[in-house]
Amino acid sequence: MTNPLRGEVIRLYKNLLYLGREYPKGTAYFRERLKTAFMKNKDVTDPEKIQKLIDRGDFVIKELEALYYLRKYRAMKKRYYEPEH
């Protein structure tokens, strides 16, 4: 019996894995953490709980995107703009 949310979870994992390629501490570090986080919840069967966990994953995606943007923005600002006094 395959869970109808199985595809959703795989999609989330793939998207996070892709985002991890740019992680400041390295891809390997990120992948390890990602796997641990997913494995921790591998026995969850309640659809409602799975949906909650997926929502949390989607939130993490948003956070990572914001982190990468800010990191880049700060680097550009430091390189190309005079420090404000």
């Binding site: 998207n15 892709y18 985002l19 995107e65 990468y68 943007y69």
Partner: peptide
């Protein structure tokens, strides 16, 4: 502006 992230999908 704030460029959007080119997501995997």
């Amino acid at each position: 502006n704030t460029p959007r992230y080119a997501t995997l999908p």
